[in-house]
Write a protein that binds this DNA or RNA. Structure first.
Lengths: 154, 154
DNA sequence: GCCCATAAGAAATTTTTTTCCGTTTTTTAA
DNA sequence: TTAAAAAACGGAAAAAAATTTCTTATGGGC
């Protein structure tokens, strides 16, 4: 089934950069036939190695020029509270990522907002979930952003 | 040119969730003709509102199950150092994001690695760039991850 | 009402995706 | 090492989708 050879790696590398490439285009670049290439991509989809194909939008162009990281600490460590918190952040569309962390902070949240009043509205929605310590750091400059994973270990 | 109406917003919302949808499929869902839909998507591409279409891979499945956030502080605040640092992180494929931050830390880096030895290898590469303070927090659990931006302000 | 500009839809064309089928390569086990 | 089985390949053809072109509608200003 899963071969995990150089060709699959090259296909994934290409799709990570540009998911709008046609099968024929990819086939040419990895030097196999269109059909073989199509079958490999199908397989990678089926196995869940390719999770999804998405369009990445320009955040500033859609009115969300401000990115903020929110560190969260809590003293509530029970399941009930955790479930509530999870539900809250999942339902907030401006919250893009939530990670439970090791170390001194409990959760790290990434969110996008239009401006400071926009952050304040988000903040108010968040603190309803009973957080003991919330501190925001704003992104001044996005120096690198990619969704491409390195495929050396693949 | 740029209309920014409900239909464009709906098209973008769909493409953010699934960029493999055919133009016809999208056209049906937003209740316009295939051609009109195609032209709108072209325009959104041309305007750069759609930045790119990418395949998102399963990090664990490609051998990168560990995500780490690295906080960086420096006392070097000159252009020469900054350029060097930028070059370093851009060239490291395991570094997915680098943000210059407000507040007490200077930079926040997101990276993916295979395991702790993998992190250590990255750490060693990073400290070569003369950073005064590097501290890592590891992601225990990814509670939410999406690239979908909310389109209310659009 | 008429003309122009703009946007929509229909149809034609081109490209891509998918299926079919015989062949080649790789793997497994004797 | 070799033969059988399994997996992967490549080319051609069919089906579907994307793209272009052409025509028709729609709305605003005069």
């Amino acid at each position: 089934m899963g071969r995990r050879d150089r060709i699959d790696r090259d296909i994934l590398a290409l799709l990570q950069t540009d998911a709008s490439l046609s099968t024929g285009e990819i086939a040419d670049r990895v030097s196999i036939s269109k059909t073989a290439c199509w079958r490999r991509i199908q397989q990678l989809d089926k196995e869940g190695i390719i999770q999804k194909r998405v369009a990445l939008l320009n955040a500033a162009a859609v009115g969300l020029p401000l990115t903020v990281y929110i560190s969260v600490r809590t003293n509530q460590h029970n399941d009930r509270w955790a479930g509530q918190f999870l539900q809250t952040v999942r339902d907030l569309p401006e919250v893009l990522e939530v990670h439970r962390m090791s170390g001194d902070l409990d959760y790290l949240i990434k969110a996008v907002v239009s401006d400071m009043p926009g952050y304040d509205r988000l903040y108010k929605k968040l603190i309803k979930a009973d957080l003991s310590d919330v501190s925001a750091s704003f992104v001044m400059e996005e120096m690198k952003y990619t969704t491409e994973l390195p495929l050396d270990s693949f």
